[in-house]
């Protein structure tokens, strides 16, 4: 338990550092994402050891769903106040999902084909 808390304190400290960086330099990138970069750099340079944070991070990520529940419940309890035209939103979401699938699929396939041709 104590180890768990210690690991969480490291992550919390990284988050605080990220938030401080973001507000100090007025960066447009959210502090939590800067914190992620800091922790990644820490791991890469060996300042932070993987076993110091791995346990708590893995269980944290596994139970991420829990954190999405309150806003979704809030949305449904408050549905009357939500003014979105559902069919328009659904249309945009599905069309842009198709664009993502095809954009990624074709570009990578094209890249691999060109590379293979160059190697021959």
């Amino acid at each position: 338990m104590l180890r768990f808390i210690g690991q969480f304190v490291i992550i919390l400290a990284t988050l605080a550092a990220g938030n401080a960086l973001s507000s100090f330099f007025h960066l447009p990138v959210p502090g939590s994402i800067l914190g992620m970069f800091l922790l990644f750099l820490g791991l890469l340079t060996g300042v932070v050891k993987l076993r110091w944070v791995e346990g708590v991070a893995n269980s944290h990520l596994r139970h991420m769903t829990l954190l999405f529940i309150p806003p979704v419940v809030g949305l449904f309890l408050n549905w009357g106040a939500v003014h979105i035209q559902l069919w328009k939103v659904l249309l945009v979401l599905s069309l842009s999902s198709l664009c993502i699938l095809l954009g990624t699929g074709y570009s990578v396939e094209l890249y691999e084909k060109r590379k293979r041709r160059r190697n021959e």
Partner: peptide
């Protein structure tokens, strides 16, 4: 009152983002 009460979860969301560094590193 539910939205007010569940504010703590948004802090955990931020530490969750920081935790994403671990799979990226791996």
């Amino acid at each position: 009152s539910y939205e007010k009460g569940s504010k703590i979860f948004s802090l955990l969301l931020q530490t969750g983002i920081v935790s994403l560094a671990i799979p990226i590193y791996k």
